[in-house]
């Protein structure tokens, strides 16, 4: 057994590209998931009973299914009804869809955490429901739900590793690929672990910094 990091430097370009794919699938999926989650939460608040039920079922089904299985369903199962996506696109779509239900639950709890009286006050002043959601509920709940959102983001960062199974050329796929080709598992896996640890640490630090910043404007 030897330890030789030259295998990393020799493949620096490929690894850098893989890193970018990881970042892209992670962030694009998360942003889309956040938007979809907010939409679901808003529809559950304002939509009628049948719509609420339908969304509830959707949420439970997605939450009950492993991410890998959702990935298989969309990437391999999609073509059987005309949904042909490239691996990276499928990855982004799956991360977005998978996270949307978790984000929806986070948003829903956030909406519920803003006292009803504040909405009644706004209603009596003639503010519409959307205006209240946008101007009163969202800014306050963002502070409350920020820790949960950051936590979800770190979970999603790790989920991108699963995309390697459907051949997305992200960090895990590329580094293990190099490893198997050159039998340098220790170096490649070590770099892989460190890369994820760094990403997660940076995310949670940024989250804590953001929490302090937005937290102060409420307590001033």
């Amino acid at each position: 057994m030897t330890f030789d990091l030259s295998i990393i430097t020799a493949n620096a370009d490929a690894i850098w590209n893989a890193f970018l794919v990881t970042i892209y699938t992670w962030l694009a999926g998360s942003v889309l998931g956040l938007i979809a989650g907010l939409l679901i939460a808003a529809l559950m608040l304002f939509g009628g009973r049948p719509l609420q039920r339908l969304l509830r079922v959707f949420i439970e089904l997605v939450r009950g299914t492993p991410f890998l299985v959702i990935l298989f369903l969309v990437y391999y199962g999609g073509p059987s009804f005309g949904l042909r996506l490239g691996a990276i696109t499928a990855g982004v779509v799956c991360i977005a869809g998978y996270s949307s239900v978790y984000f929806a639950e986070i948003f829903r709890s956030g909406f519920a955490a803003v006292p009803r009286g504040q909405l009644e006050a706004g209603e009596c002043l003639g503010l519409g429901r959307l205006q209240l959601m946008w101007r009163v509920q969202l800014p306050q709940m963002l502070v409350l739900i920020l820790p949960s959102i950051i936590n979800m983001l770190t979970i999603l960062c790790k989920e991108t590793a699963v995309l390697s199974i459907i051949t997305v050329p992200e960090l895990t796929a590329v580094l293990t690929g190099i490893g198997t080709r050159t039998f340098t598992f220790i170096e490649t896996l070590l770099v892989l672990c460190i890369a994820y640890l760094l990403l997660i640490e940076i995310t949670s630090r940024a989250g804590r910094w953001l929490e302090r910043r937005v937290g102060t404007y409420l307590q001033r």
């Binding site: 089904l61 939450r63 009950g64 299914t65 299985v69 959702i70 369903l73 199962g77 059987s80």
Partner: peptide, 19 residues
């Protein structure tokens, strides 16, 4: 090659335990 069907059943089984 019945990808969709098998994965749908698979998702269903996980849901039957997890929900």
């Amino acid at each position: 090659y019945l990808f969709f069907q098998h994965y749908l059943v698979l998702a269903g089984i996980y849901c039957l335990i997890n929900i």
